[in-house]
Computed example of a mutant assay.
Amino acid sequence: MNGTAIRVNQLLNPQTGKAVIVAFDHGGSGVPPGGGDVSGILAAVAESRAEGLLVGPGVARQAGRYFARPGAPRLIVSMDAPIFSSMCGEHGKIRDHARIATAEHLMMLGATAAKVLLPVGYEGTEIFTKGVELVRSCAMECQALGLPLMVEPALWGVKASEKDNALIEHSARMSVELGADILKIPAPTDTAVLERIVRNAGVPVMTLGGAPRDAEGFAADMQAWMSTGVAGVVVGRNVWSRPNPAGAVDALVGAVHENNPEAVAAGWAAAGEPAA
């Protein structure tokens, strides 16, 4: 078993083979709503029952004081940042993405895995081709060091939609072909499509949480996702934008590891409302 396989398994709960990962890599273009207290969020997630925390390299530098202990969540660190505008804090359709770290640098930061975007839906092929080359170069670097690479097909271009099930399936396959060791994907609305992706990917597939939403709807989605055999969830604003992030993680743990999707609805209420 090589280093990549060992580190992938380190991200998964040994009892269930699944993971709850908190995504807090949203600061690459500015301060996200509810995400300004970096040290407070790091401290809360470090003491939670999450298997992992996804952050950018700058925040990863601050994480050592919270995560350098036995049993702490593992760090996954981004190798790139999305470009939405030339003005920090502006969002919308993606315009580009830029490399911000090397695999060697992430190993120095204590990463158990790396993450990179595969932006999809640009108007032209030139910028998409550059993005494909970025993903592949990241994958080659990571493979050389035994560092797993999580690839996220980002359906954020003007021609793409996260509700396009066929596009999710195509972009998941492309991500695997480019070297993904873990997939982080928007969940198709058709569970049959998600089942097919999980069955055919050959790597762990995790669904992303998306924007904050009502507890009942999210609980129902969680139940549907877990029934397909996904390896877990990567949830951001639905966790750290709430007053009690650790309580939100507990809710996800109940759904992912304890087969109790109702825990999400109850846990969301206990964790408080997300920031607007």
Rank of each mutant, 00 (worst) to 15 (best):
G121E: 00
L155S: 02
E126K: 08
G92N: 03
A101G: 04
M150C: 14
P82C: 12
E152Y: 07
S161M: 08
A139V: 04
P119I: 01
E152A: 12
L167M: 03
V132G: 01
I83N: 03
V132C: 07
G92T: 06
V135Y: 04
C88D: 05
L149H: 03
M87P: 14
C138S: 07
T125R: 13
I100L: 07
E133S: 12
C88I: 15
G110N: 12
P119L: 04
P148S: 08
T125V: 13
H170F: 15
V151Q: 02
I94R: 03
S85L: 15
A139P: 01
L117H: 00
L134G: 00
Q143R: 15
A81Y: 05
E126P: 02
E152R: 01
L109E: 09
P153E: 07
C142P: 03
G121A: 01
M140R: 14
E169D: 12
L106S: 05
Q143Y: 14
K130P: 01
L106G: 02
D96W: 12
G124C: 09
E162M: 10
I168G: 00
G124N: 10
G110E: 05
P82V: 14
H97Y: 14
A98C: 12
M150L: 15
A166K: 01
P119C: 10
M150S: 06
E169R: 15
R99E: 15
G131H: 05
L117E: 00
H97N: 14
A98W: 15
A144Y: 13
D96N: 15
K163A: 10
A111L: 04
G89L: 09
G131S: 06
G131I: 09
E141C: 07
M150D: 04
A144L: 13
G157A: 06
E123W: 11
E141H: 09
R136G: 06
M108N: 14
H170D: 13
S161W: 07
G92E: 05
V135I: 15
R99Q: 06
L155E: 02
V158K: 12
H91K: 14
V135H: 03
L134C: 03
A81H: 00
G92Y: 10
G157T: 00
R95M: 13
P119Y: 05
A113M: 05
H91L: 14
G157P: 04
A98I: 12
H170W: 11
A103Y: 05
V151D: 02
C142H: 03
S137Q: 10
V132H: 00
S86G: 13
I94G: 03
E152D: 09
L147P: 06
K93I: 03
E169Q: 13
V120C: 01
G146A: 14
M107H: 06
H105C: 06
G121Q: 00
V116I: 15
G124V: 04
K115G: 13
I83Q: 05
A81L: 10
S161N: 08
A166P: 02
L134S: 01
M107F: 06
A113N: 05
